[in-house]
Nucleic acid binder design. Structure first.
Length: 323
DNA sequence: AAATTTAGCAACCGCCGTACT
DNA sequence: CAGTACGGCGGTTGCTAAATT
């Protein structure tokens, strides 16, 4: 029964074992006290003992290759391994599960689709950050402390991202079903969550209109520039930055959230690391349709204080650790 | 310093396709 | 066609060392 003997491309014998081979194997196992099954021996050889196996850390190039191939092939570890000489599928799989997957998640990407995540629970870290933001606000009432301002700016960037994700999640949940159980949270729950966030904002930093200019400017290349602002804050917004600013009020209350979205008008320029934004007021330019749009200029001619965070010139979401 | 938690990694397990009798 | 064994694959587990409390 079984296969007849044959050879692979390396000249190694394959197929069923002959009685002589069995004898030799039994002899070797008895001789060396090896109490292992064949499958275990094979795995040990292919994954560890094979002389052509490359050991040690994965290089940047290898990491990029794995990411690229995984985005195309998915969890086809053996296929991916064929493009990385000396690396086994098991090693790549482990590297993916322990490093790359976490890295993508931290960056806000779905490790399976390689796209930005939109499910609610992926935003939990940001929710936690928001909670700590509120705590911070309760703790400090002065905005004059540079360290506090710097931290607030960091938190605000995270908040902006959270709100974008929440908005995406709620709109998705009402229109489509997905196999992902995490998105099965009810609309009511999601809306309650959003409303609670809005109330936190209204009671905290949004009352400080002088901070608004910096709070609504997460300038990055690959992240949403949208920031939600409570609708009852519209007047203040118009007075402070809406008058001819380069921020656009996108829409008002398309759903029950009754919120505004603010985004910098085309195309957002990265702020020079040595300058703070200075907002200048001018006339309101109403936009088309029911979208309430306005236009202003925010320049960066301001003197850069020593506390201006350097990471604003980079991608804050990638480099920032949520405390 | 001890206890606990976390991260990394090798190995295991079960499934499937293929080859052969 | 059924039965058997091999070989490969991907998901998961469990051990160990490092980090943290």
């Amino acid at each position: 029964m079984g296969r007849s003997p044959c050879c692979d491309e390396n000249g190694l014998k394959k197929g069923p074992w002959t009685p002589e081979e069995d004898q030799k194997l039994v002899h070797h196992i008895q001789l060396h006290g090896l109490n292992r099954c064949g499958k275990s021996c094979r795995l040990r050889w292919t994954n560890y003992l094979r002389p052509d196996i490359k050991r040690g850390k994965f290089s940047q190039d290898e990491e990029k290759t794995i990411l690229n191939l995984h985005s195309i092939l998915g969890n086809k570890w053996s296929m991916i391994a064929t493009h990385l000489p000396g690396r086994t599928d098991n090693e790549i799989k482990n590297f993916w599960n322990t490093h790359l997957k976490k890295k993508l998640i931290q960056m806000g990407f779905d490790p399976m689709t390689h796209r930005p995540r939109t499910d609610l629970f992926s935003s939990l870290p940001q929710l936690i950050a928001l909670a700590s933001l509120k705590e911070l606000m309760d703790q400090y009432h002065s905005y004059e402390d540079p360290t506090v301002i710097m931290r607030l700016q960091t938190e605000a960037v995270q908040l902006a991202r959270l709100q974008y994700l929440l908005q995406s999640a709620t709109s998705t949940m009402t229109t489509c079903t997905t196999p992902n159980a995490l998105t099965n949270i009810s609309d009511i729950q999601a809306l309650n969550l959003l409303n609670s966030l809005s109330s936190i904002k209204e009671n905290s930093y949004m009352n400080s209109s002088s901070q608004l200019g910096s709070l609504v400017m997460p300038y990055t290349d690959d992240l949403p520039e949208l920031v939600e602002v409570p609708s009852n804050f519209q007047t203040t917004l118009n007075n402070e930055i809406g008058q001819g600013s380069d921020f656009t009020l996108l829409s008002q209350g398309e759903n029950s959230l009754k919120s505004l979205w603010v985004l910098p008008s085309s195309p957002p320029l990265p702020p020079p690391p040595s300058a703070l934004p200075v907002t200048e007021t001018s006339t309101i330019n109403p936009g088309d349709g029911d979208a309430c749009s306005t236009s202003t200029t925010t320049s960066f001619g301001g003197e850069a204080p020593s506390f201006w965070p350097e990471f604003f010139s980079e991608d804050p979401f990638i480099n920032d650790e949520i405390s």
